[in-house]
């Protein structure tokens, strides 16, 4: 237990941890603040103003239409050809209708907590996952690099216990940060919803769904932190994790996309990692193969491939377990020099 508390303290004392936490807080606060300015509460006055604007637009449009019809009839009376210029029947069939001037189009943007907050959970998860990756990789990478790990092993020679305790301290810290900031993030958007948007229809079922999205975000953040920790431990350097991340991004997001495009692989994006991240948050990702359609023959329903969140869990889970098993195995087997 003392080692666990020590590692929590060590992680908290690290300059990078504090710097990244400040950057994360500033980033999230900036997003929330900027977003709050873009949302406007739809008060009865604002709705009435939008309705009045729509009515005015409708009236202007009708007057324009009447003037056009009159001009057309005058031209016909002069014996001129009007069909090309005014359309058939002087455009009488195209009289503007009131429903074509929906007041909604004149309303300012209003944040709808129920409909839009899940997207902001994904944004939050992305930011905290980046924090977890950098802090996780650096926590163990810098320890190896500066000799801290060796010093610690002279005190606690049980290698697996030391690495496991460090991982536990990292995940506990990341979990704590995610839960606390997640609560603040939810409160901030609830506040934006109540003061400058709407929180209507946020039923218990909606909160349950938001809770599940939150759990998915927490799981992703923990997996990212653990993988970064494992990679840096495997390479005994922070740069190993950062290098691996760049390599995976380059291979998955660029290399594979180009390859499946060139080879015309059906549903090629199922081999791209970000598809699984998207599916994890959106519960599923739908991929379409438009090559199966011949649009010249009319409307077509393209072939569909669905990546489920369960498949995402499998991909990320297997990746994380493989990295962690590798890290612990090398910790046990490799000499420390």
């Amino acid at each position: 237990m003392s080692l666990f508390v020590t590692e929590l303290r060590r992680l908290g004392k690290r300059r990078l941890t504090r710097l990244m936490l400040v950057l994360l807080l500033v980033g999230l606060a900036t997003v929330a603040t900027a977003f709050s300015f873009s949302s406007h509460k739809l008060s009865p006055d604002v709705v009435a103003a939008a309705q009045a604007e729509s009515d005015a637009q409708y009236k202007r449009s009708v007057e324009d239409w009447k003037r056009t019809v009159t001009d057309c009839e005058a031209a016909q009376a002069r014996g001129e050809q009007t069909e090309e210029r005014f359309g058939p029947n002087c455009g009488k069939d195209y009289q503007p209708q009131p429903e074509m001037f929906d007041p909604k189009w004149n309303l300012p943007y209003q944040f709808d907590f129920r409909a839009e907050f899940p997207t902001f959970i994904a944004v939050f998860a992305g930011a905290v996952a980046l924090f977890a990756f950098i802090v996780g990789a650096s926590f163990v990478g810098a320890e190896w690099n500066t000799g801290g790990m060796m010093n610690l092993l002279l005190w606690r020679p049980r290698r697996l216990a030391v690495l496991g305790t460090k991982l536990a301290a990292l995940l506990t810290t990341v979990l704590g940060v995610t839960v606390v900031l997640g609560a603040l993030w939810t409160a901030a958007f609830w506040l934006i919803g109540t003061s400058r948007g709407t929180t209507a229809k946020t039923t218990a079922g909606v909160w349950r769904s938001i809770g599940l999205d939150g759990l998915r975000a927490v799981a992703l953040v923990l997996v990212v932190g653990a993988v970064a920790f494992a990679l840096a431990s495997l390479g005994r350097h922070t740069a190993m994790a950062l290098g691996a991340a760049v390599a995976v991004f380059a291979i998955s997001e660029i290399g594979i996309r180009i390859a499946v495009g060139v080879l015309s692989v059906p549903f090629g994006e199922r081999y791209v990692l970000s598809t699984y991240a998207q599916s994890w948050f959106m519960k599923q990702a739908e991929l379409f193969d438009y090559d199966t359609c011949q649009f010249a023959k009319g409307a077509c329903e393209p072939a569909k491939y669905v990546v489920t969140w369960e498949q995402s869990a499998l991909v990320f889970g297997v990746g994380a377990v493989a990295a962690l098993v590798g890290a612990f195995w090398t910790m046990r087997r490799r000499d420390i020099s």
Binding site: S2, L3, V5, T6, R9, R10, K13, R14, R15, A142, E143, T146, G147, G148, M150, N151, L152, L154, W155, R156, P157
Partner: peptide
């Protein structure tokens, strides 16, 4: 291990911690 104190090769410590922090963390561990 608790009865063996050792330094091996050149001293290596986390550069941004103070000496008191460094020793404090080891003492706690």
């Amino acid at each position: 291990a608790g009865r063996v104190g050792a330094i091996v090769e050149s001293p290596q410590f986390f550069p941004h911690f103070s000496a008191r922090d460094t020793l404090g963390l080891l003492a706690q561990a």
